[in-house]
Amino acid sequence: MALSREQIAQRVAQELQDGYYVNLGIGIPTLVANYVPQGMEVMLQSENGLLGMGQFPTEEEIDADLINAGKQTVTMATGASIFDSAESFAMIRGGHVDLTVLGAFEVDVNGNIASYMIPGKLIKGMGGAMDLVAGADNIIVTMTHASKHGVSKLLSNCSLPLTGKGCIKKVLTDLALIEIKEGKFHLLERAPGVSVEEIKNLTEGELVVSGDIPEMTF
């Protein structure tokens, strides 16, 4: 079975380490915050200028001056800090953020990512995504493996305008965990009950399968 949004978030959370500064994109990546393992300390960076993002506020705590990059009202965790947008992107571009998780429309075997524009259809802008993919070394892309119509989003060449070139090394889809190296996709894990064959069929770019591929565990 394909992973649910929550399961994708849960699997990403397994990549967290104690003391990590993490930037979570909008959508599924945001859910990762719900699955930080017990006893582990992780600090969330929100690129509008907050390090140490807390949970959503109660009705009484709502503060219009305190939002996250998705423009949602939030709170501050203990030990949080606030800074301007240039400082925020100095953290991101300077490679100080330990893990970045973000969504995408397409990725390809060369580590290219397209996530911000569908010409003629969706032209809202890249926000901080181009900075995040260019600045971070440790990035996990979360996405569905294929469209509803079965069209692969893991390609030999991205067809949409790129958000970043050659910067993606790890992709977690609803079907598989994949590493990108030497111009190929490498299958690391598969979703429980999903066969290697199914994954192959929905991966347009070259997929390397070596040995037995373990199922993800939660």
């Binding site: 949970q55 959503f56 506020p57 109660t58 709502i62 949602q72 009202t73």
Partner: peptide, 16 residues
């Protein structure tokens, strides 16, 4: 006015 774009809240009885 300080309008809020995405008003997101948690119930007041849940703890961190």
């Amino acid at each position: 006015e300080k309008r809020i774009e995405q008003r997101t809240v948690r119930p007041s009885d849940t703890e961190a």
